[in-house]
C-alpha cells in the first residue's frame, strides 16, 4: 500500500505505524512492519512506530540484526568473467588430479586385495553382481533384441536392392558382436548400476559413513570401490555375451520372419561371419567399459557434496561421465582394432 502510492511518486513527510487496538497478531504483521521500516529507510523519511506491542518490537529488533549480519548486497554481485574462467580451469585441473589419485588408490587397493584376498568383501561383491547382472537381464535382453531387430530392418532396406538379403546375418552379427552388444550393455550398466553406485556412496558420504570407515582404519577403496569394480568387471562381459545372443536373435527374427531367409541359412551365415577375434574384441572392450562405469559411479559418489542435492548431482554426473568415457574408449578401440586388424 505504501509502496504503491510511492510508485506514483508521492512524497512522504513521515511514515507512521499505529498498531494500537490490535490485540492478536502473527508473523505477517511483523513482516509488514519490517517492510515499511525498510522502505522508510530507503526513502530517507522518518518512520514512527510507537504503539507497537513489546514482543513485536523485540522481534523486529532481532530481524533487523540478522539482516545486517546477512552481508551486503554487493557481495552477491557476480564475479568477473576472468575470475569465473580461472576458477573453472582450476576446477578442471583439480578434477583431473582426483581421477589420477583415484586410479592410483584403486591400484594400491587391488594390490592389497591380492595380498589378503581373504578379507575381500565377497558378500558385498556378490550382491552387486546380482544387482548389476541378474537383475539387469530383462532390460539388457529387451534392448539388445530390439537393437538387433532395428539393425536388421535397416540392413534389409539396403541389401534388398541387390538381392543380397542373406547378408543381413553378417551385418547384424558383426555389428552386434563388435559394437552394439558391448556398448548397449555398458550404457545400460551406466544408467542402472553406475548411477546407483554414485547414489549409494554419495549418501554414505553425507551420513559421515565414509569418515567412520576411515577412522576405523578401513580403507574406503577396499571396502566400497573394489567390490563394485570387481562385480562389474565380471558382470559386464557376461551381460555382453547375453546381449550379443539376443541381438543376433533380433536379426534372426527379422531375417526369417520378414525376409524369408531359411533358419539354417541364417545361422550358418552368422557363424561364418562372426570370427572368434570379433567376439574377443567385443569382450575385451566390455571389461574396460565395466571398469569405467564402476569407476565413474564410485568416484562421483566419493566427490559428492554432503547434501541431497549434491548426491543428485553426483548421480547425474556419474552417468554422463560413464557414457562419455564409454563412447571415447569405443572410438579409440575402433581405431586400434583397425590397426591391428581384429
Amino acid at each position: 500500500m505504501v509502496k504503491r502510492s510511492a510508485g506514483r511518486r508521492e512524497k512522504f513527510q513521515e511514515i507512521r505505524v499505529d498498531v494500537g487496538g490490535v490485540d492478536s497478531w502473527d508473523s505477517s504483521l511483523l513482516l509488514f512492519v519490517s517492510q515499511i521500516r525498510k522502505y522508510a529507510a530507503e526513502l530517507n523519511v522518518p518512520c514512527n512506530m510507537e504503539n507497537l506491542p513489546d514482543l513485536l518490537r523485540n522481534l523486529l529488533e532481532q530481524a533487523g540484526e540478522s539482516e545486517s549480519a546477512g552481508g551486503s548486497q554487493d557481495a552477491m554481485a557476480g564475479p568477473s568473467l576472468l575470475v569465473v574462467l580461472g576458477e573453472r580451469f582450476e576446477k578442471t585441473l583439480a578434477g583431473g588430479g582426483q581421477w589420477l589419485t583415484f586410479w592410483g588408490e584403486c591400484l594400491l587397493g587391488g594390490l592389497r586385495m591380492a595380498r589378503r584376498w581373504r578379507k575381500f568383501r565377497w558378500r558385498d561383491c556378490l550382491i552387486f553382481m546380482q544387482q548389476a547382472g541378474a537383475m539387469g537381464l530383462p532390460i539388457v535382453g529387451l534392448i539388445s533384441f530390439l537393437v538387433g531387430l532395428i539393425l536388421a530392418y535397416q540392413a534389409a532396406i539396403q541389401l534388398r536392392e541387390y538381392g543380397a538379403e542373406i547378408f543381413v546375418a553378417n551385418l547384424v552379427g558383426l555389428s552386434v558382436v563388435r559394437e552394439m552388444g558391448p556398448m548397449m550393455t555398458a550404457v545400460i550398466l551406466a544408467g542402472r548400476t553406475g548411477a546407483s553406485f554414485a547414489a549409494q556412496i554419495g549418501n554414505m558420504k553425507m551420513n559421515e559413513e565414509i569418515d567412520a570407515l576411515e577412522t576405523l582404519g578401513v580403507h574406503p577403496m577396499d571396502f566400497l570401490v573394489l567390490p563394485r569394480m570387481v562385480a562389474l568387471v565380471m558382470m559386464a562381459p557376461l551381460l555382453t555375451i547375453y546381449a550379443n545372443l539376443l541381438g543376433i536373435l533380433g536379426g534372426y527374427v527379422v531375417g526369417v520372419g520378414q525376409l524369408e531367409i531359411s533358419s539354417s541359412a541364417y545361422w550358418y551365415q552368422s557363424q561364418e561371419a562372426i570370427g572368434l577375434n570379433d567376439l574377443a574384441g567385443g569382450l575385451i572392450k566390455s571389461v574396460l567399459f565395466g571398469v569405467v562405469v564402476a569407476a565413474a559411479g564410485c568416484l562421483r559418489g566419493l566427490q559428492s557434496d554432503r547434501s541431497s542435492e549434491g548426491v543428485g548431482r553426483a548421480t547425474t554426473s556419474a552417468v554422463v561421465t560413464a557414457i562419455f568415457l564409454i563412447i571415447v574408449l569405443d572410438a579409440g578401440f575402433a581405431v586400434l582394432f583397425e590397426r591391428v586388424g581384429i
Partner: peptide, 16 residues
C-alpha cells in the same frame, strides 16, 4: 587411527 574410537554426532552407522 586404529588406537582411537569415534562416535559421530550423527552416529554414522553403515546403513547397509
Amino acid at each position: 587411527l586404529r588406537r582411537m574410537g569415534v562416535l559421530y554426532q550423527s552416529a554414522a552407522l553403515w546403513s547397509t
